[in-house]
Nucleic acid binder design. Structure first.
Length: 934
RNA sequence: AGGCGCAUAGCUCAGUGGGAGAGCGCUUCCUUGACGCGGAAGAGGUCUGGGGUUCAAUCCCCCAUGCGCCUACCA
């Protein structure tokens, strides 16, 4: 064994061991065909992402589980991978193109997608590299990406099947639109945030000239699209207005005043403007009253022709200012006031969402949700902690259809084609219905064309390819027939036309994520992976994507595999900063996991995360704790360093006929710790496991055991030395095994370099509880009492440690006497006594300090050491404490109801406690009296 | 508006229907032959407030206060 460094330095060793594991294929599932299996699919991080604290916690937990299961005989597979993150990735690449002043439309769709792939090749595995730094034992040969060929095939298959079953459909309705990302978003992707806005009161003059009605709105610019004003039918103020019309200011339109009982009489003026094309409420009431719908804002967030020439082309926010100015001039702006309200923001870019009427693809999820609810109700899937089931149920029972189309390029393009040369069901030529808007004017025969329907463009001389290539937006109305296909098609199956137009939209990234647990294992092929590992064992994730991801995986898994995708869903907390705030770039409160790893080592960092991983909503991360656990690792390191001096006495890894009490005791404690650690991991209480090992290693093994064995190791007794060293190595080996799932690197290092093992610790068996000595703990308690008794007198009286003193221990109990006598050298050494006398009766001498412990009193003659006054005040303090405690217990014991109702053993315990205390009090008081007489 | 969660030592947090815990910090002492990234001895909490259930409540129930989160169409 090479010389131990004084401290453990992680950075040198972590990469080495990680490569060693990879080179030796230690992450590959192994085991026979009848081995039990364990499988986790990683929640795929965004390919654009870099490791943050949430990922680190998430991966640490999964790694603990995988390493533990692997060591426990399970054929274990941890599938890693990344998510193509449609909008986010497209944004990133567009931004980098913008630096070179390149617009993706100029580049064209195929070329742009090529750029994204090369971006991915260059930067996309950053997070993979970071996971490796953390020590994640993923099987990298199973690395998957949602845009892989296999996974894309799964996406295609699912889409086609759902389409064929009628569960996927197109519809024209109001959706959340991000004008910056230029795409539709699902309900979940609209984040509602309260903002401080203003409520404007606008006068709408009655057409009959009899006055006006005032409406209140937060979005005056949408008034241009108003198609009615609504009041409550029972609102006395407006009863006579119903049925009349108003002249909509700034336009030439007349709109009716209608009655609708959803109107809140008490809000604003009680009269509300209705804009069905730009507000979800208004869309609903528009439908109820058969109102027309007028889109005044377009996909860019700019005003349309419908808004009128004065406003056309203005940005919606600019338009608001102009409208307000115009209204003021016409004296139609009655008043305005501050008003805070919730506004939807794009979850990717935080732009304020614009509700727009567009045609999108939807999944009818209710039939899927029903089964998904049942699976959780019937405990085929369990949420841990259980409370999360409520959230899941609440959302699932009120689920809305899922908008899955996105108007971007990066993603799985929808496998649907439209034929412009076919006629639809009402006999119209479909080409006349398909509208194209070009990203820049196209010159043909000297004319510049900006938009038009397909047939028109064709007639003007544009080729099919030109039309498609130049289109920024292709609007295909619902009446055009969808040709959905598993394979790309170029010919219309009905009319043989070669002019097929593929739906330009791509699918929501979460659509492919929903298939992750089976698409990564090879579905739709029937693979061995699927047979071996589906359903997976547990999904580890945070609560913020229960709806986005977990719920959808459950629905898809049940639908396409007939079985839920996992048995357990372990929901861990969200990592916040030490003040409880979410970490974000803009707040500047980000703690970078890689910085933590660099400063303290991956092991210390992981161990802290495990300790923090208590069941709860959030974790406030504090760096000091990481530092604390680095010290812990150093402690372990030095324990190994300590025993390495006595390596020559290490004869056997088997323990037979253990005689020494310290050895029996520490083995018993080890046994207990093993049970605790296993119990903790099995119940996802990683903090319990981590704390149990910490407590054992530091406070029992290092603080007590090592100190207890020192005198024996310094002696010449080879027999006891051999027993101790064998025992030490035995324990230490188990400690490393127990710790391995939590701190893989240092345990592997010590396993190899210190224990000299030939195979990786990763592939060794996790400890099982075995050896235990029933009486050892009780016997050991006597040693502890003696030692801490002497130490506390020394400490409190400030007897300098270099001074060896004499102690007298008085005990009437022969068993106690025997135990103390046979461990005398340890006690003397640790308590720093030159002499310890064990007696059955002791006549108190003058000037003697005393402490009363269970089954013994300890006396220390102070003569020549210090004056007795300090001992007097120490004893008085102790008496006070005893009195306080006794009062409480006495109160309990004098309560008849307590004696009657409480379990016998509790009563006995209290009685015993009281007896002990009164003995203690008596003896302490006597001694104090004796001191006072001096 | 509805739902959920949290309030425990100076700080960050565990925990339990019957003796209040950890890490860090703090005080005093110690270069003892693994470790000062160490050791020993201590100080420090009416377990947010108020009610209820119970022989017994920090823990269960109700109310209040404060904070956080999620869902929701109040313009």
């Amino acid at each position: 064994m090479e010389l131990f460094e004084k401290t453990y330095s992680p950075s040198k060793l972590e990469d080495y061991w990680y490569n060693y594991w990879q080179d030796n294929k230690a992450f590959t599932p192994y085991g026979s065909d009848d081995s039990p299996t364990f499988c986790i699919v990683i929640p795929p991080p965004n390919v654009t992402g870099s490791l943050h604290m949430g990922h680190a916690l998430n991966a640490t937990i999964q790694d603990i589980l995988c390493r533990y299961k692997r060591m426990s005989g399970f054929k274990t597979l941890w599938v890693p991978g990344t998510d193509h993150a449609g909008i986010a990735t497209q944004n990133v690449v567009e931004k980098s193109l913008a630096k070179d002043k390149i617009d993706r439309h100029k580049l064209g769709r195929d070329a742009f997608i090529q750029r994204v792939w090369s971006w991915k090749a260059e930067y996309g595995d950053r997070i993979i590299y970071q996971l490796k730094k953390l020590g994640a034992s993923c099987d990298w040969e199973h690395l998957r990406f949602t845009m892989d060929e296999g996974l894309s095939k799964a996406v295609r298959e699912v889409f086609v099947r759902l389409f064929e079953e009628g569960l996927i459909y197109r519809d024209n309705r109001l959706i959340n639109w991000c004008p910056r990302c230029h795409t539709a978003l699902s309900d979940l992707e609209a984040e509602h945030e309260e903002i401080e806005g203003r409520l404007y009161f606008i006068k709408y003059p009655l057409t009959d000239g009899s006055g006006h009605i005032t409406v209140a709105t937060t979005r005056p610019e949408t008034m241009l699209g108003d198609t009615a004003v609504a009041v409550h039918p029972e609102d006395e103020r407006y009863k006579d207005f119903i049925g009349k019309s108003v002249d909509l200011p700034l336009t030439s339109r007349k709109i009716p005043i209608i009655a609708d009982n959803t109107v809140d009489k008490d809000f604003g003026t009680g009269a509300v403007k209705i804009t069905p094309a730009h507000d979800f409420n208004d869309e609903a009431s528009g439908k109820r009253h058969n109102l027309s719908s007028l889109s005044v804002i377009n996909e860019e967030g700019k005003m349309t022709t419908e808004a009128g020439l004065r406003y056309k082309g203005l940005d919606r926010h600019e338009c608001r200012k102009l409208i307000l100015k115009d209204l003021k001039e016409k004296d139609l702006l009655e008043s305005e006031k501050k008003h805070s309200h919730n506004v939807g923001h794009c979850y990717r870019c935080k732009t304020i969402i614009e509700p727009l009427q567009t045609i999108q693809w939807y999944v009818n999820v209710s039939p899927l949700a029903e089964k998904a609810i049942k699976a959780v109700e019937q405990k085929e899937i369990s949420f841990i902690p259980e409370q999360w089931e409520n959230n899941y149920f609440a959302w699932m029972r009120d689920i809305k259809d899922w908008c899955i189309s996105r108007q971007i390029w990066w993603g799985h393009q929808i496998p649907v084609w439209y034929c412009p040369d076919c006629k639809n069901e009402t006999g119209q030529l479909q080409g006349e219905l398909i509208e194209h808007t070009f990203f820049s004017p196209v010159k043909v025969r000297g004319k510049e064309i900006t938009h038009g329907n397909y047939t028109q463009c064709k007639d003007l001389g544009l080729s099919h390819d030109d039309i498609i290539k130049n289109s920024k937006i292709i609007r295909v109305p619902k009446s055009v027939k969808s040709l959905c296909s598993r394979f790309d098609i170029t010919k219309c199956p009905h009319c043989n036309s070669n002019n097929l137009i593929r739906d330009p939209d791509v699918l929501d990234t979460w659509f492919s994520s929903a298939l992750w647990p089976f698409s990564t294992l090879g579905w739709p092929e029937d693979t061995k992976d699927l047979r071996d590992f589906y359903p997976t064992s547990v999904l580890v994730t945070a609560f913020d994507i229960i709806f986005f991801w977990v719920a959808r995986m459950i629905m898809m898994g049940l639908k396409f595999m007939g079985k839920p995708p996992f048995k357990d869903v372990y929901i861990h907390a969200i990592v916040r900063d030490s003040k409880g705030q979410k970490m974000s770039k803009s707040m500047g409160n980000i703690i970078d996991p890689l910085v933590m790893i660099e400063k303290y080592g991956a092991d210390a960092f992981r161990f802290s995360l495990a300790v923090f991983a208590a069941h709860g909503r959030d974790i406030r991360f504090s760096e000091e704790r990481v530092e604390g656990y680095r010290h812990f690792i150093n402690k372990i390191w030095n324990a190994a360093k300590f025993i390495s001096t006595y390596q020559e006495f290490h004869r056997s890894s088997k323990l037979e006929d253990i005689k020494g009490l310290q050895n029996k005791w520490i083995l018993t404690r080890l046994n207990f710790t093993i049970e605790e650690v296993i119990k903790g991991i099995e119940s996802y209480r990683f903090n319990d496991s981590a704390s149990a090992i910490y407590q054992f290693v530091w406070h029992e093994f290092c603080d007590w055991y090592i100190e207890l064995i020192k005198p024996e190791l310094y002696s010449d007794n080879k027999l006891t030395k051999t027993e101790i060293v064998n025992c030490f190595y035995f324990i230490f080996e188990k400690i490393l095994l127990l710790l391995h799932p939590f701190m893989p690197f240092v345990t592997e290092e010590l396993w190899n370099k210190f224990l000299g093992k030939k195979t990786s610790i990763m592939l060794s068996s996790f400890p099982k509880s075995t050896i235990k000595f029933v009486n050892s703990e009780a016997e050991m308690a006597n040693l502890f009492n003696a030692i801490t008794g002497i130490r506390s007198i020394r400490g409190e009286l400030n007897i300098t440690p270099s001074l060896e003193i004499k102690a007298i221990i008085n005990t009437p109990n022969n068993e106690v006497k025997r135990v103390l006598l046979s461990n005398m050298s340890s006690i003397k050494k640790i308590a720093k006594c030159s002499e310890i006398e064990i007696v059955s009766t002791y006549k108190r001498a003058k000037g003697t300090a005393v402490t009363v412990r269970d089954l013994m009193e300890i006396y220390i003659p102070l003569e020549g050491i210090l004056d007795v006054n300090s001992e007097k005040s120490r004893l008085m303090k102790e008496l006070e404490k005893i009195d306080k405690e006794m009062v409480l217990i006495k109160k309990k014991l004098s309560n008849e109801d307590f004696l009657k109702n409480a379990p016998q053993q509790i009563v006995e315990k209290e009685k015993a406690k009281f007896d002990t205390l009164s003995t203690k009090k008596e003896k302490t008081a006597e001694n104090l009296k004796l001191l006072k007489t001096i």
